[in-house]
Computed example of a mutant assay.
Amino acid sequence: MKNTLTIAAILAAAFLLTACEPKRGSEAWCKKMDETPKGEWSFNDAGDYTKFCVLNQKPEDQ
Rank of each mutant, 00 (worst) to 15 (best):
L11T: 09
L55E: 12
E27C: 04
E21P: 04
K38W: 01
G25H: 02
D48P: 01
A9M: 14
C20A: 13
L16S: 11
D45S: 05
W29S: 14
K2S: 11
I7C: 07
T18K: 08
G39Q: 12
L16N: 06
F43V: 07
E60Y: 08
L5G: 12
A19D: 06
R24N: 08
N44R: 13
Q57T: 05
L5H: 11
D61Q: 08
A28Y: 02
K58D: 11
L17C: 12
W41C: 00
Y49R: 06
C30R: 11
T6G: 08
N56I: 02
M1D: 09
C30H: 05
E60C: 05
K32L: 11
I10W: 08
C20D: 05
N3K: 15
D48N: 15
W41H: 01
T6W: 11
T4N: 10
T18S: 14
F43D: 05
F52R: 09
C20T: 09
W29E: 06
G39K: 14
S42A: 03
G47R: 15
T50Q: 07
A14Q: 09
L11I: 11
L11F: 14
W29L: 09
G25M: 02
Y49C: 01
A8D: 06
K31G: 07
D34H: 09
E60D: 12
